[in-house]
Write a protein that binds this DNA or RNA. Structure first.
Lengths: 192, 192
DNA sequence: AATGATTTAGTACCTGATACTAATATTAAT
DNA sequence: ATTAATATTAGTATCAGGTACTAAATCATT
């Protein structure tokens, strides 16, 4: 194989590998690619990939940004009645090698809204029946609507429907029960 | 105020400030506390606070942990038959102010095993019926067992049961269908 | 005044880089 | 086959943000 082709291959490898794991030193990359550290530095410069420390730093900042990773943003809530939230999907949520969003992210999004509409801190999921109607793809903007169907025993039945581009993607029914009002008080910041 | 008291105050400040924002250099901390950088270094040593780079690094790693799904560790897999995996829960998975693990983490754990037993890269969840039998608590070691119940149409029905301390915590039935698998090739090391 | 705790200063060294230069393959084009 | 362009390696000086250590200066207390 020509060096030019090897370089291209290496570049693809670097882009992919570093994206999925920013904690890779030039030295390690060099070893993995069987080239010198200098080559890796040239490659990074060509590809516009920042140095290790910057990568780690921005990874930390991103992590810092997303308080709860898959909860989405609540747009509207009528407590004990209904709620709407949105979630922008991205390729951190997909099956490796595809752009199909994993069910667990959609589930978490739905469960979260179901809990929020009941008053998150006071409810637990007991049973969930969920259906993934259509695949969701990375980049899709998911819109979840939840409705409290009825009260049952000491709990609630909440339905959540999620759509992407007007198409139904997910449909779930959550049976929630109130958790006993044993709340541990907020963090005490009073010190002298 | 005595120097000793000032020091104590500074120590409290450092612990709190660095906890809420790890991106603070010794130089910045020194300026904020109106002492020299040396003093800050002494303080950090006394308090066991790691240096800037280590703080940023572990922040990034934590962020990475929470964004990547909680899949647990697979202990045994008989493809298309059954599998076992474990997950150590922690307080990043709980409802705020409690030690009760959120359903979505348990769900993700279960879904993952269900997918793994079928060959993760080639299957999608279509329907899931899940029941949270008992609360799981932070620190619990969850053990999930999955069994393929039967093939159905072009898919599978997989049951997953999760226990903590011998007690059933979760029970779920997943209906999975095969998806066309697309492999991403590893970096080619054949060259010389 | 002497003792011990606290704070500051300074040195050598470390890692994982950047920025740059120079030399050496290897390939493609003429 | 020779040349020009491309790819790779090596080496130097420099940087940031430290560690680890030593020594001196500055209180506060007895």
């Amino acid at each position: 194989m020509t060096r030019t082709a090897l370089k291209k291959q290496r570049h693809e490898y670097l882009l992919k590998k570093i994206k999925q794991n920013p904690f890779l030193l030039d030295e390690e990359l060099a070893k993995a690619c069987n080239v010198s550290v200098s080559t890796i530095r040239f490659d990074r410069a060509e590809l516009g990939i920042a140095e290790y420390r910057e990568r780690v730093k921005s990874a930390a900042q991103e992590g810092r940004m997303s308080t709860s990773p898959t909860s989405g943003e609540v747009l509207d809530i009528n407590l004990f009645h209904d709620g709407i939230s949105v979630l922008k999907t991205d390729d951190s949520m997909v099956f490796e090698g595809t752009d199909i969003v994993k069910g667990q992210y959609i589930y978490a999004f739905a469960e979260n809204l179901a809990l929020n509409v009941i008053d998150a801190k006071a409810a637990l999921v007991k049973i969930a029946n969920v259906k993934y109607v259509h695949e969701a793809h990375a980049g899709d903007r998911l819109i979840a609507k939840s409705e409290v169907m009825r009260e049952k025993d000491n709990g609630f039945i909440v339905r959540v429907v999620i759509k992407a581009n007007m198409n139904e993607v997910f449909r779930g029914k959550f049976s929630l029960i109130a958790a006993d009002g044993k709340y541990s008080e907020e963090y005490n910041e009073n010190n002298s």
